[in-house]
Computed example of a mutant assay.
Amino acid sequence: MTVYVPAGARHGERLPAILNLHGTQSTGSNQLHYSDMKPSADAGRYLVLAPSGVIPAASGFAWNVPGVGTPPHAARDDVAFLDQVIATAVTSLCADPKRVYGTGYSGGGRMISAFACHRPHRLAAIAPVAGLRAGRPDPLDPSRPDPQSCTPARPVPVLTFHGLQDWTNPFQGGGSEYWRYSVPAAQQRWATINNCASKARTVTLTPQISKITYAGCRHGAEVVLYTVADGGHTWPGTPVDNGNGTVTHEINANQLMWRFFQRYRVHPNQAPAAPPG
């Protein structure tokens, strides 16, 4: 596992941590580079935990996302693995167990979504990039999430980013078997899980960027989606061109998710702190 410790961290200091999961055919170290999270970690003084999947995929690995596809025989249980990653970070790296957050790109976004479904007590909030899911597609109607496949025992605040020109994980769904339902359907399902108000509020930030928010949620666990009209299968704000379409620099995913994360702690019966600033 690749770990980044922010500049100036003091020995024994309890720091927040972000679990940052790579996309399919990549690795933890590649994800740390692609997401360009080191500067944000230095500014926010948080650890970055970037483990690798175990299923071979091209020159990298894939995650064993529960309920999706047919993994190789005896593939690692990646929900249990990520649980252990967090436990190790808390005991050995002085991560603050109340301030562990999750993000991931593409297949890593699908994996962190699934982990939040199965281990909601481990994560104070999640922010998948180009990969938000809310359980497997319903076998009876793949255009919607199967409500029985994601039933967390506590609300999980969700922030996500998705390009409308993403042809790998299309915004409107379709494509691979694990990607049958749309991103708005995934957002709406998380809003239902979090007992949010039934209607979302949409704000146009720029001609290319819109912000869609479900508020009024249990324990303040908002569900927020940034859409990028010209965005591809990419990480907003990264300087790295991965060849998967336009990268927006009108917003920066790392800065926005860290601002969002700071509002939340793992306190099942407590509302989030007020936004900083």
Score class of each variant (00 low, 15 high):
161 F>L: 05
123 L>F: 12
150 C>P: 03
105 Y>H: 15
161 F>Q: 08
94 C>T: 13
131 G>Y: 11
153 A>V: 12
103 T>V: 04
124 A>S: 14
121 H>W: 06
111 M>G: 02
145 P>A: 11
115 F>P: 00
108 G>P: 10
98 K>H: 14
95 A>E: 10
131 G>P: 13
101 Y>M: 13
123 L>C: 12
103 T>Y: 01
93 L>I: 07
109 G>R: 08
95 A>N: 08
104 G>A: 15
127 A>P: 07
133 R>C: 01
135 G>N: 04
103 T>R: 01
160 T>W: 03
134 A>N: 05
121 H>G: 15
119 R>D: 12
103 T>C: 08
163 G>Q: 14
108 G>N: 12
128 P>I: 01
136 R>F: 02
161 F>K: 05
119 R>M: 07
126 I>T: 06
91 T>G: 03
155 P>C: 11
136 R>K: 13
125 A>S: 11
96 D>R: 04
101 Y>Q: 12
128 P>A: 07
147 P>W: 04
93 L>F: 10
96 D>P: 09
161 F>E: 05
101 Y>K: 11
131 G>T: 09
147 P>A: 04
157 P>Y: 08
125 A>Y: 09
124 A>E: 13
159 L>S: 04
91 T>Y: 00
148 Q>V: 07
100 V>I: 15
129 V>S: 05
110 R>S: 04
144 R>G: 06
139 P>H: 10
114 A>S: 14
132 L>H: 02
146 D>W: 02
128 P>T: 07
100 V>S: 10
91 T>S: 15
137 P>M: 04
102 G>Y: 10
137 P>V: 03
100 V>C: 11
150 C>L: 02
127 A>C: 09
133 R>E: 06
115 F>W: 13
119 R>W: 07
115 F>S: 01
119 R>F: 06
107 G>M: 05
168 T>L: 07
127 A>Q: 09
158 V>S: 03
134 A>R: 03
125 A>C: 11
115 F>D: 08
151 T>R: 15
106 S>F: 09
101 Y>N: 14
92 S>Y: 06
166 D>N: 03
145 P>V: 00
91 T>E: 11
107 G>S: 12
156 V>K: 05
151 T>K: 13
125 A>Q: 10
103 T>K: 02
134 A>D: 03
142 P>M: 00
103 T>F: 01
98 K>I: 00
117 C>K: 02
143 S>L: 13
140 L>G: 13
154 R>T: 11
105 Y>E: 13
100 V>Q: 10
124 A>F: 13
102 G>N: 08
117 C>D: 07
117 C>R: 03
154 R>P: 01
128 P>K: 03
146 D>Q: 00
163 G>C: 14
135 G>A: 00
109 G>N: 11
142 P>D: 02
159 L>V: 09
137 P>G: 06
166 D>F: 02
103 T>N: 12
153 A>E: 14
106 S>H: 06
121 H>Y: 10
131 G>A: 13
129 V>Q: 08
158 V>Q: 01
92 S>I: 00
115 F>K: 00
162 H>M: 09
